[in-house]
Amino acid sequence: MSVLIYTENFDGKFKKSTFETVSYGAEIARQMGTTAIALSMGNVADDDLKTLGNYGASKVLHFNDARFANLDNSAFATAIAQAVEKEGANVVIMSGSNIAKAVAPRVSVKLKAGLVFAVSGLPKKLSPFTVPKKVFHGKAFADVVFNSAIKILSIAQNSFGVKEHLQNAAIEAFDAKVDDSAFKTKVTSVEKSTGKIILTDAEVIVSGGRGMKSPENWKPLEELAGILGAATACSRPVSDEGWRPHSEHVGQTGKIIAPNLYIACGISGAIQHLAGVSSSKVIVAINSDKEAPIFSAADYGIIGDAQKILPELITAFRKFKSEN
């Protein structure tokens, strides 16, 4: 019996979401009276692997195979399933990332293990194993019971937080047996902007809607984002109009986000938009329509034209940053 945590790395480095996943898995392991084992795949330095111990992992399995530099869903799932079997893990923890969505379902079928996405907190019960999850993008929550020996949980981002629990994690080399023939997808090129803050990692997000009136008006919004170290986002009509790229669309059919601070400029707050942003810790809404539904979801509101308010906010935040 053990808890196995799959830890994603990004070019060899861990992110906050990885540490949250380990923190969560380690807490379940404590509740179950067992050990938390992290699995890392790819080229990660020992010093980085060691840091997983800071969040409660007592052992790190390291599978370093050059063929795993690019994601192949089937090959990754094969390796993870072998690690689960080797460690006799009965609970497997993954993040809520695109990688988890790509790989976890395949692991589930390989191991006949129940799989729940969007898990929103610690298990309600260990027997029968029952976890809370978001449904309808946070318009309700549900308790899900597992009927399988092995359980796979993918946790909703920022639902648990990063919690330190110092362990001296032993690093153990792990060698999964994966044939070359298992790789049936090939990455032929990569397009990646560097230095830009990634929307799903961002602690602060400044977002614009149709009330911004035209794509040229994004300049002050980007300036504010720059001051706050924030990522920029937009509502669905804005990406549909082509004012901003689809990758910036937050909402039910776009990205689901959970930053500390979400500043919505000229966004009325359609129910589908709120579904994508309601997990933000604090929401600020700026809108000229005082009846806009965004104010029912917001913590702080300013009634006014975002075009006029944004320059004033830039001045105010700049002053704050220079004093703090």
Partner: peptide, 26 residues
Amino acid sequence: IESSDYNGSAFGGMLAEFMDLPSVSS
């Protein structure tokens, strides 16, 4: 990639695994 009701993201990957086919997500 997801169902808008119970927010599972599992179906496509599971289907691929049951059928032993490659899959690409996102």
